[in-house]
Simulated scan of single mutants.
Amino acid sequence: MKLVPLTDRVVLKQCEAEETTKSGIILASAAQEKPQEAMVIAVGPGGIVDGKEITMQVKEGQKVIYSKYSGTEVKLEGEEYIIVRQNDILAVVE
């Protein structure tokens, strides 16, 4: 099964949470902060959204940073994904 986003939606797979701090302290799973970095899995075609032409700026395989409380979490075949609007993506990590 494959997720195919519509219009200006982007499917993201969240990167793993840091398990240790920079100083080497191991974090319990409850203390780990949910990362805002993710890999782009699929990109919608763009098009007209709210009367404006939307051109997609991200591509599959890019690593991005997205807004903390954005998107919809979905689970498909045991994998967790986040579906966000393109304008919820803040930056591309190069």
Rank of each mutant, 00 (worst) to 15 (best):
V11T: 07
I54M: 14
S70C: 12
C15N: 05
I54K: 13
S29A: 07
L3G: 02
E79H: 02
L12R: 01
Q32R: 15
L6A: 13
G78D: 05
V49E: 09
S29F: 02
I26C: 04
I83Y: 00
Q62D: 14
S67I: 01
L90C: 10
G78Q: 03
P35C: 05
K52I: 12
L12K: 05
G46H: 11
L76M: 08
T72M: 12
I26A: 12
A30K: 09
S29V: 07
G78M: 06
Q14I: 12
Y66V: 07
G46D: 04
E77T: 12
V74H: 06
L90H: 06
E60Q: 13
Y69W: 09
S67K: 15
I65G: 04
I89D: 09
V43N: 00
I54A: 06
K52T: 03
Y69S: 05
M56K: 13
A28N: 13
L6C: 02
E73K: 15
V58R: 06
G46V: 06
E79D: 10
Q14D: 00
Q86D: 08
I26N: 03
I54S: 07
T7L: 15
T55Y: 06
E73F: 08
L3K: 03
E79V: 10
Q14T: 08
G71Q: 02
I82W: 07
R9H: 11
Q62Y: 09
E37N: 04
S29D: 13
K22I: 14
S67V: 04
R9Q: 15
L3E: 02
A38K: 04
A42Y: 01
A38P: 02
E18F: 11
I26K: 09
Q57W: 09
I26L: 11
K13N: 00
Q36F: 07
T21P: 00
M56N: 07
A30R: 01
Q57P: 01
V64S: 07
R85N: 13
K13V: 07
R85H: 09
